[in-house]
């Protein structure tokens, strides 16, 4: 029940943030998938047990931790890619600005 509340809460909070434009749709995707994943696994406990057997874990908790960990890694990687892109854009902008300033 607790997990269901967390999952549903996360899902709704993200939709609300996208609605208020505090979170871009692009970033919401991974989070929404996580929220939905939690809800699905809570409602469909069989799937969680099957997954647990599939990955060779002893308890369903381990499965949840592993998926949680993988998710955090993915989202961090995604941020690193974004930061790289933003750094390049900031560099190009600063260079353009400096050259523009010089020519003014």
């Amino acid at each position: 029940m607790f997990a269901l509340v967390i999952g549903a809460g996360l899902f709704l909070a993200i939709i609300e943030m996208v609605r208020r434009r505090r979170l871009a749709e692009e970033y919401s995707f991974l989070w929404l998938v996580t929220g939905a994943g939690i809800i699905v696994l809570v409602l469909w406990y069989d799937l969680l047990e099957k997954l647990t057997r599939f990955i060779g874990a002893m308890t369903p908790t381990t499965t949840l931790f592993i998926f949680g960990f993988v998710f955090l890694m993915l989202i961090n990687l995604h941020y690193s890619v974004k930061i790289t892109e933003l750094t390049k854009q900031v560099k190009d902008l600063a260079q353009k600005l400096a050259i523009y300033d010089k020519e003014k």
Binding site: K91, A94, Q95, L97, A98, I99, D101, K102
Partner: peptide
């Protein structure tokens, strides 16, 4: 001739 970057890069 001096070009000034707005911050250290």
């Amino acid at each position: 001739s001096v070009i000034e970057l707005p911050f250290n890069m």
